[in-house]
Computed example of a mutant assay.
Amino acid sequence: MSYRKLQRTSSQRKALLRDLTTELILHGSINTTVARAKEVRKTMDKMVTLAKKGDLSARRQAAKIVRDAVADVKEDGANVTVQTALQKLFDEIGPKYKDRNGGYTRMYKVMPRRGDGAPMVQLSLVD
Score class of each variant (00 low, 15 high):
R13M: 07
R13T: 02
K14C: 12
A15R: 05
L16E: 02
L16Y: 07
R18A: 02
R18T: 01
D19L: 11
D19H: 07
L20S: 12
L20Q: 10
T21P: 00
T21G: 01
T21F: 00
T22S: 11
E23Y: 12
E23V: 00
I25C: 08
L26G: 10
H27D: 12
G28W: 13
G28I: 13
G28Q: 00
S29W: 07
S29Y: 11
S29A: 05
I30C: 06
I30R: 09
I30Q: 09
T33M: 13
V34I: 08
V34R: 07
A35C: 03
A35K: 05
A35Y: 02
R36P: 06
A37E: 01
K38P: 12
E39S: 13
E39I: 10
E39W: 02
E39R: 09
E39G: 10
R41M: 10
K42E: 03
T43A: 07
T43M: 04
M44N: 00
M44C: 09
K46H: 09
K46F: 01
K46A: 12
M47T: 00
V48E: 01
V48P: 00
T49I: 04
T49V: 06
T49D: 05
L50V: 11
A51Q: 07
A51C: 11
A51F: 00
K52E: 08
K52S: 08
K52D: 07
K52L: 02
K52F: 01
G54E: 01
D55M: 04
L56S: 11
L56C: 04
L56Y: 07
A58E: 12
R59H: 12
Q61V: 14
A63R: 08
A63Q: 09
K64V: 03
V66W: 10
R67V: 12
R67P: 01
R67W: 07
D68V: 00
D68N: 13
D68E: 11
D68C: 00
A69Q: 15
A69W: 01
V70M: 14
V70R: 15
V70A: 04
A71R: 02
E75D: 13
E75K: 15
D76W: 02
D76Y: 09
D76P: 05
G77T: 13
G77M: 13
A78R: 15
A78L: 14
V80S: 08
V80N: 02
V80Y: 00
V80C: 03
V82E: 13
V82A: 01
T84I: 15
A85D: 01
A85T: 01
A85V: 14
Q87M: 08
K88W: 01
F90G: 04
F90E: 09
D91L: 14
E92F: 04
G94L: 03
P95Q: 09
K96M: 14
Y97A: 10
Y97W: 10
Y97Q: 03
Y97G: 02
K98Y: 06
K98A: 09
D99L: 13
R100S: 03
R100V: 03
G102Q: 07
G103E: 04
T105H: 06
R106F: 05
M107C: 10
M107E: 10
